[in-house]
């Protein structure tokens, strides 16, 4: 399935440059002209709004009027108030756990499809992606039905006699949030890993084997390092969006599973403090990007050590 292979976009071969300056100029002009409607749209409705959020985060609000003097007060509140600290830390931990679990669980699937998928690779990818394209809201609701007090999991465990009264610890906590998010993001992790595994030259693995590496060693020293770009994009594509997830914590998180998105949303609803909401958004983005960056570096280091 071609969908989502953002890595492919960057690695597409380009036409060889020609020396004629005029030709380049016209090629450049045509390219820019053609992409401009889409680009302008993205600038107007994605880039500018985000700039405005950043600007707002340095302003203050007094009832309905906005005071545009520069201040760091919102960031002090966002980083200093215990409630926001807790929410931020919990959101970051949950998104880190979700991305590690999702990537780990998904890697063998991507590997299986790429190495043993045979002629049915596309069918496999399709089977894996279909559940992830069907309503997100309904899938979260379904987990609520599964994990609830009188839910499928509890009645199932009761009927086979593993437990003698329903567990209350399944739903309304961070574990429920993690399970639901891992389920939601599975395909998003499999696709980039699959794309990079497809690019691994199979003869290199054979060579490693011929030179005396066992299966595990050839995997650690050849396959894994070569598929690292896919693992990294899978990691980023799961970790960054999940930190701001709103629906899952609301439906299955209960009190202990509340995440930062709920606090951000409150600032635009009843709380009505846009500058604080903006500061919370920016803080979340900056910290999660930094954390993702660190995680990626750590991953690279680990793989280098395994070599």
């Amino acid at each position: 399935m071609a969908v989502l292979s953002a890595t492919e976009v960057e690695q597409r071969p380009t036409h060889p440059p020609k020396n004629k300056a005029r030709w380049t100029a016209s090629e450049e002009a045509s390219g820019l002209a053609l992409i401009s409607p889409t680009l302008l749209y993205a600038v107007a409705l994605l880039f500018l709004p985000i700039l405005i959020v950043v600007a707002y985060s340095f302003w203050t609000q007094d009832y309905l009027t906005i005071d545009r003097t520069f201040t760091l007060q919102n960031y002090k509140t966002a980083l200093g108030e215990p409630i926001y600290q807790d929410l931020l830390v919990r959101s970051l931990v949950i998104s880190l756990v979700v991305s590690v679990v999702t990537v780990t669980l998904s890697y063998p699937i991507a590997w299986f499809i790429s190495f043993h998928g045979g002629v049915h690779k596309n069918l496999w990818l399709f089977l894996i992606t279909v559940p992830c394209w069907t309503s997100y809201l309904l899938r979260v609701m379904s987990w609520k039905v599964i994990l609830g007090y009188g839910g499928v999991m509890n009645t199932g465990l009761l009927s086979i006699g593993i437990i003698d009264k329903p567990l209350t610890s399944l739903l309304y906590n961070s574990n429920a949030v993690v399970i639901t998010l891992v389920h939601s993001w599975a395909a998003f992790a499999i696709l980039p890993i699959f794309v990079s595994l497809e690019k691994v030259d199979r003869s290199l693995i054979e060579a490693a084997h011929d030179l005396g590496d066992n299966k595990l060693m050839s995997f650690l020293r050849v396959t894994l390092p070569l598929s690292l770009p896919g693992v990294i994009s899978a990691f980023l594509i799961v970790m960054i969006p999940t930190v701001g997830d709103y629906v899952t914590p609301k439906l299955v998180g209960g009190k202990d599973g509340v995440m930062i998105a709920t606090a951000i949303q409150a600032q635009f609803g009843k709380g009505a403090n846009w500058p604080l909401g903006a500061a919370l958004s920016v803080t979340t983005m900056v910290i999660v990007s930094a954390m993702a960056g660190i995680a990626v570096l750590a991953l690279k280091l680990l793989v280098r050590m395994a070599k």
């Binding site: 985000i50 980023l236 635009f268 958004s281």
Partner: peptide, 12 residues
């Protein structure tokens, strides 16, 4: 693809 949806929802 790489942004929390809530953030661009709020910004819009």
């Amino acid at each position: 693809l790489f942004l929390p949806e809530i953030i661009f929802a709020v910004s819009l």
